[in-house]
Design a protein around this nucleic acid. Sequence first.
DNA 1: AAGTAACCGTTACCTTAAGTAACACTTATT
DNA 2: AATAAGTGTTACTTAAGGTAACGGTTACTT
Lengths: 239, 239
Amino acid sequence: MARTVKGGSDARRERWKGHREARRAEFVEATIRAVAKHGPDVGMDEIALEAGVSKPVLYRHFADKSDLYLAVGRRGTDMLMDRLGPAIEQDGPIRDRIRGIVDAYLRVIEENPNLYRFVVRGSFTDRPVEQDVVTEDKALIAATLARLLGDYLRAFDMDSGGAEPWAHALVGMVQNAGDWWLDRQSMSRQSLSEYLATIIWHAIDGLLRSADVHVDPDQPLPGGLFTEPTLRLINSEEA
Amino acid sequence: MARTVKGGSDARRERWKGHREARRAEFVEATIRAVAKHGPDVGMDEIALEAGVSKPVLYRHFADKSDLYLAVGRRGTDMLMDRLGPAIEQDGPIRDRIRGIVDAYLRVIEENPNLYRFVVRGSFTDRPVEQDVVTEDKALIAATLARLLGDYLRAFDMDSGGAEPWAHALVGMVQNAGDWWLDRQSMSRQSLSEYLATIIWHAIDGLLRSADVHVDPDQPLPGGLFTEPTLRLINSEEA
DNA sequence: AAGTAACCGTTACCTTAAGTAACACTTATT
DNA sequence: AATAAGTGTTACTTAAGGTAACGGTTACTT
């Protein structure tokens, strides 16, 4: 009986699993190259050409344009998180760590300005909001920061209601300052990191002071705070 | 001689000046309605239909889609600046004024969420960056804040090099927190304003403290600072 | 060895939405 | 009366995303 089709684990079906992934990655790379060449408004034809295939091949691997762009975005996410993760987990004086995190972010966008602009500015009109990589990333980072801040505040018996808005505020702050800097690089990356770290530190310090907690910015934090597992990037469950 | 054509001030040419403006405004309104109805991906046909005309009429008043959207954006700019201007110029304790400015912004996006999302998210892929209303607005507000902050810092003989990045940081901060809040309104506008004002105040206060300047957040500023003409929104020269 | 499930790849087409051409009518100024 | 502005229409062109239909290759299954 030809019952092989239904449900059976035909090896022919599995055979390609890895390959498909590799191919997608290959097309994502091609897209990035195409964007570098033709600017952010590349067409699918040009991307296909750059990849050395014709359009339908592309469409076998990506449902549509946004799907491809989404993959490009995720690729950017990976690059970002690979840098941000370690920067967040690093120990040392709190002031330096803030600067380290900010600087890690700025380094990523400095090294990939085209990709960055493409992913951020190109954010797809047609996809539902939850499928927007930039929104996703910001939400992920903000959630991590919110948890961090919240724990921090609660450890000092302070109201932690502000943790979430503050986290989003911090994310927006760094992003927007980064955008501005990327467009007209009128100061060194180090200076900007320093300036941003300064203002962030003052904000945090101010919150603590208002509860009469005094922290030395140049000393590592006591009691394992800021180095707990919660500080790692919270895993978002994705399909 | 039929020399009336060239350069002469034929009244027939002037006759419509006002009318054209009115018509553009009318179409901008129609676009906003159409967006409310059909979501941010409206087509020109639908917009034309909503305006009660057919497409070519639209194209007599707007060079292309982005031109129309740009006009919609500027309309948003006006609404925003109308609120932000007075909020910035208001006097009173500095802490309250910060909250007032933030709250003015939040009120605008709260009252026009659809328009806001359309203008911000829809930001045109095809126009050059300088024609992006959102970027323009943010730059304008940031420039105003930068000048404000710079004057402030210089008045206390402090390094004012951070004024510009800080200004952009503040703008991004409020915008991003606002976006987050708009999507899931998990707290009252007042609470958010308060939280944001708190962190901003702490940031500023921290900067001043680091130069041994102590300011009472609940007292009006001395010496006319923060109420000078520079505080008004800087005029951007537009074509 | 034959069949087949997955892929590779192409050309030529469909569809949608932005934008335009060509045409006819209105109104107040010259 | 001529004309410069504007009003408006239908029917078209164009560009870009996306698809249909075709044929070939590889290696697992029977």
